[in-house]
């Protein structure tokens, strides 16, 4: 994982269909997909959701970030299948045996359900990740009525991270020139982090001090502040928001209802 993936701004090219969908709609879509996948334990439905999210990605675009996120999860899902297939507390029915070790149906089903949910969330988030840019999100959030301060607190890290990484590389180079011994034990390694971290933290915090002073001097909290209209035009944003929020409310309500009924 590099800082590049946290900052994968696409260059201003021609507008694709997914650029007409606003970021909040995309976030609500993730929420709805996650809720749907948690609504039941039906594997066919999970498969349907995975396919839907996957197709959406195929028709927008697939980036290395999604592949990396998937890679890590697939490995975890695999270990989950093994552990639950072997040791799940409700295991009864042997599904198959490898070298005399029994894998049980209940555990495997349980792990598959959990794994499917994770995949749904990752794929649905993938759509958001690859089709919105950081600057689009920042601008849209302020347009939707959040204060500059809130947007700043949320998004600024994406803008200042390259600078912090740059400072880190400079400090590391300086350390290397001074010659640092190879570290073996955890304690030695941890100590070797300090000569990089201390100056880096001080430098980063110093920059935030200056930035805080500068923002105040430049009048960020002036009540007259009026964000400029963005050039992107979103289609049917209001309708999407209402629709997707209603789906979310219904799903949560239904889940709660069945849970409460289950108690009696």
């Amino acid at each position: 994982m590099t800082d590049q993936s946290m900052l994968s701004d696409e260059s201003a090219g021609k507008s694709k269909w997914y650029n007409a969908v606003d970021p909040i709609t995309k976030l609500l879509f993730i929420l709805d997909m996650a809720l749907l996948s948690f609504a039941g334990t039906n594997l066919i439905m999970e498969a349907g959701l995975i396919t839907a999210a996957f197709l959406l990605l195929v028709f927008s675009k697939i980036s290395s970030t999604t592949v990396k996120a998937l890679g890590f999860s697939l490995f975890l899902i695999f270990t989950m299948l093994v552990i639950q297939g072997l040791f799940y507390s409700k295991n009864q029915t042997v599904l198959f045996s490898v070298l005399g070790i029994n894998f049980y149906k209940e555990g495997l089903m349980y792990a598959t359900t959990l794994g499917s949910r994770v995949l749904v969330i990752i794929l649905a988030s993938g759509f958001f990740m690859v089709t919105t840019t950081i600057s689009e999100n920042a601008k849209y959030l302020e347009q939707s009525g959040l204060s500059y301060k809130t947007v700043y607190v949320l998004m600024s890290v994406c803008y200042i991270l390259p600078e912090i990484m740059g400072n880190m590389r400079k400090i590391q180079q300086a350390q290397r020139v001074r010659g640092v011994n190879p570290q073996r034990t955890i304690l030695q390694k941890l100590k070797s982090v300090l000569p990089v971290l201390i100056p880096l933290v001080i430098k980063t915090l110093d920059q935030s001090m200056t930035r805080s002073i500068s923002l105040q001097l430049r009048g960020f909290d002036n009540p007259k502040r009026k964000a400029l209209k963005a050039d992107t035009h979103y289609r049917l944003a209001g309708m999407w928001h209402i629709g997707l929020t209603m789906i979310a409310v219904v799903l949560i309500g239904w889940k709660l209802w069945t849970k409460i009924n289950g108690l009696f």
Partner: peptide, 23 residues
């Protein structure tokens, strides 16, 4: 570097910041 807003995509946005603040 510390004087930059930390939330601007381009140099033009950075320059516009002070004026946007004044409406």
């Amino acid at each position: 570097a510390g004087q930059l807003s930390g939330l601007a995509d381009t140099v033009a946005d950075e320059l516009a910041f002070d004026l946007i603040n004044q409406g």
